[in-house]
Amino acid sequence: MELKELHEKKIRDIIDEKQVWNLPLIEKDASIEEVLSVLTGRDHVWVVEEKGSKKLVGIITESDVLRLLAPPRLPKYVFGKRYGVSLQHGTVKVAKDVMHRQIIKCSLDDKIGDALCRMINCGIRRLPVVKDDEIVGEITVHYILQILLGKR
């Protein structure tokens, strides 16, 4: 497939409906041990409202875990609760304590080119595909590469 052609395609044209069953999902009240366990094999996990639900409420990425694992370092000017989040000091108990609540997302009708631009502008490598607040899939750089090279 031509790259220009791919840019114009809509996400619904490339998304695999079965993908939703293979998404890394965890409920917001899951213990931090469960979160870390999922992240031993994946580089991110989508956080949903409750078990069995697909309502997206957050995301936890590799870099969040990196911050949790490293010895806590406070910045010069401390505000809010962000810097009190520490695995070492036991202040992180469940997924919602560490997740990002504001999620950058895309919809089924968005163009692939727009989704890629959003990833660059926001400095992220994956976007959840959301329909009526529920996660129905995800777009990652790997996934788009596979489509481009005809491996999907």
């Binding site: 406070l74 401390v78 009190g84 520490s86 000091h89 036991g90």
Partner: peptide, 11 residues
Amino acid sequence: VRTLMEMHALH
């Protein structure tokens, strides 16, 4: 926060 971290009392 720094002191509570040192004292392991932040949680």
